[in-house]
Design a protein around this nucleic acid. Sequence first.
DNA 1: TTGCGGAACGTTATAATATAACATTTAGCC
DNA 2: GGCTAAATGTTATATTATAACGTTCCGCAA
Lengths: 154, 154
Amino acid sequence: MSFPSPQHDHGPCVVHALQVAEEECRRRGARLTDIRRRVLELVWRSHAPIGAYALLEALGKAAPPTVYRALDFLLAHGLIHRIEKLNAFVGCPHPGHAHPGQFLLCRQCGAAAELNDESIEQAVRRAAEKTGFLVAGLVVEAEGLCPACRKDAV
Amino acid sequence: MSFPSPQHDHGPCVVHALQVAEEECRRRGARLTDIRRRVLELVWRSHAPIGAYALLEALGKAAPPTVYRALDFLLAHGLIHRIEKLNAFVGCPHPGHAHPGQFLLCRQCGAAAELNDESIEQAVRRAAEKTGFLVAGLVVEAEGLCPACRKDAV
DNA sequence: TTGCGGAACGTTATAATATAACATTTAGCC
DNA sequence: GGCTAAATGTTATATTATAACGTTCCGCAA
């Protein structure tokens, strides 16, 4: 929901994400296989979105379809999000319900934070309705400076 | 600002866009060369975003850098917008001031409409400020059904 | 008007992202 | 165990985008 402090202890963060994912998959009857778990873990290695080919390289001996299939699975079950403007992927901090997600992307350090702000979605829906458009999916990606980089920049 | 009716007369629409572009370039001291004009015209051939390689093919004998350079120019001068989730480009209906733009993308017919709704941008800024994030650029892309396709779908 | 200098364009090669198609293996289940 | 469907492996290729460098064009000033 907001930016982690730059020196936060990231280990527990990853462990927690994996636990939540396990649980969510159990609940859904979905199989979090080894590859899928490894990809999810790699995605969670940092709070900056990571590209498919970086994941591929980190995985070691694997071909593109392998990582794309894992990503498709994780996306389908709401465990990660795709950042359109970066062609990259980031962990979802609260899987369990389908949601579009709104993202703040730091142009300095690369970190991403996910918002789930009702008022943003409502503003879009209201504006769309005025034109008669029916909103089914929504991408919101803001680029700028996270709190830490903003301070550094002063 | 909103969706054109499906059978609207598109010719004047293109002519008008080119006139506005000419004017805007004159005002800015920018050169709207033949290639750039042709790319802009191709972009305006429909209200659906078009990809770089489709433009390339339509241009005839040209290499990728040619069309990407033209697109860069048109983007830089606010004459077109890039749709991130489609890797495609659409004409800007009101160049003249830099603006991010918010887009409604019909998943049925492919048409795009541009919004410039203050309340959407404000909602994002307000939510971002709560986390201490400074917004510099904003992508808003809603996918759904345009008025015409919505009627057809009933 | 001629030549200077920078912008625009041409050309070739290649990088980065993503998917199609089909073979093989694995896991769950009777 | 053997069936079936899901998951993965493998190869090739599609799609989107840029690097690098040479050439041409255009405005401008000597």
